[in-house]
Write a protein that binds this DNA or RNA. Structure first.
Lengths: 231, 231
DNA sequence: GGTTTACCTTGATGTAGATCAAGTTAGATG
DNA sequence: CATCTAACTTGATCTACATCAAGGTAAACC
């Protein structure tokens, strides 16, 4: 299925920074190469160990990317929001996916096959360059997170992840985290109980307020920033 | 200074996978664009916060890339060995370096300026594609390491880093780690004392043997593998 | 090559956070 | 809408590792 929105215009990837500034011809080419698919909550877009030859771009919804350790413990690598892309390693290294991508809520994901992407990249070096820039940014984020994991305590990491995700969430226009707290725990590498306690502590300090299971309101973002920067 | 080895042939980057398969003309172009510089132990190739417009490729020696937390605690992101490259973020995002690159021993580093690299990439899409592949591999490594940091204990992380670096070191042809143990500690995010104790424990189990300050011999790599994979 | 210095080792103590356990609640499901 | 179930909370205990402290030792430097 090709990817068009209700107006009949192409959609999916055209609001993604990497794909901006294409000529009309290239746009048409790219548009032809896009396949979209819907996923319900809990469904997998791809799984660890699968062979793949496509780039995945999130159009709607949220995916979580996880890896399983040999003993079966799950670790959450990242969440993907609209405009984010995934599956890079399997795409470029012609290898296997090293993570699972699971829909956290009903989602639409666009797919561009390697063959088509390669063709577009080879005629558009600006786009290839933007791709390199986007990947170096992701690499920077990963490096920063490695640093945080190794020298920040649970409270600081929590403050950091809250700021990080609410910055993304604010784009989407809601302050309701579509993420279970145990998943939050999985991301920052602590036990769910610890997240519970730390969130309660932040609420007691008046920095955030909690409502229901997934409702987290940031009352005082600069206090969070102070905590996460304090080391 | 342009970069030539003692035979008068171009060197530095031509044994680096990304730069293979260039035409004669492109090789000449690239060769013209390479500047090399020597660094003594302890000297910095670049520093956090500096503006930069070059790609750095390690020719000889070892660099360590570190970040400083706001409070001044150092974390080691990675070591760079001959053939590795660094400075990607500042290069592609036209931003500032987010890490310090320091020579761990006498080193030679080659530099390719953005302007020249861009020119070469734009006429050689295969090379741009190889660059993307190399970066996706580094991203995978970073992701894997984030997972390890969050769900492995000190002993497993130590086993993993030993295997990781000795695989690289073996290429270079020595089993003598050019890295102080406190730096090893900095990489895996534990206290130096813990590294001391865990190494002693591994030696007691007959898996490694220690000699002098930086001498670590891997006696039983598969035992290390078993430890690092056991979760 | 002797001296200096930073690195390393080993032991003792403290603590953040994991784990275990048991009760509570929100939201999914039919 | 009622029920059911997975997620969450809160408390008690336990442990791996950090931190503090005080020698020892290799390597770097003159």
């Amino acid at each position: 299925m090709h990817c068009h929105d209700s107006n009949g215009h192409s959609s999916c990837v055209f609001h993604v920074p990497i794909f901006t500034g294409l000529s009309e011809q290239e746009t048409a080419l790219l548009n032809q190469a896009i396949y979209s698919q819907g996923y319900k909550k809990g469904e997998f877009v791809f799984r660890e160990g699968e062979l793949s030859d496509a780039l995945y771009v999130i159009h709607e919804g949220v995916l979580k990317v996880t890896t399983l350790s040999n003993a079966g413990k799950e670790h959450i690598l990242r969440f993907l929001f609209p405009g984010d892309f995934g599956g890079l390693f399997a795409l470029f290294k012609e290898g296997l996916h090293y993570g699972n991508a699971e829909a956290v809520e009903t989602s639409v994901v666009c797919r561009i096959y390697r063959h088509d992407l390669k063709a577009i990249l080879s005629t558009n070096s600006e786009m290839a360059y933007r791709f390199l820039a986007a990947m170096s940014e992701r690499l920077r984020d990963a490096d920063e997170w490695i640093g945080s994991m190794s020298l920040m305590d649970a409270e600081r990491r929590l403050a950091k992840i809250l700021l990080l995700y609410f910055a993304r969430i604010a784009d989407v226009g809601t302050h309701h985290l579509p993420i279970a707290k145990k998943d939050l725990a999985g991301m920052i590498g602590v036990a769910p109980e610890t997240v519970s306690r730390k969130l309660a502590s932040l609420e007691a300090q008046g920095i955030i307020s909690l409502e229901g299971k997934k409702g987290i309101h940031i009352i005082n973002p600069s206090a969070l920033k102070r905590i996460s920067d304090s080391l």
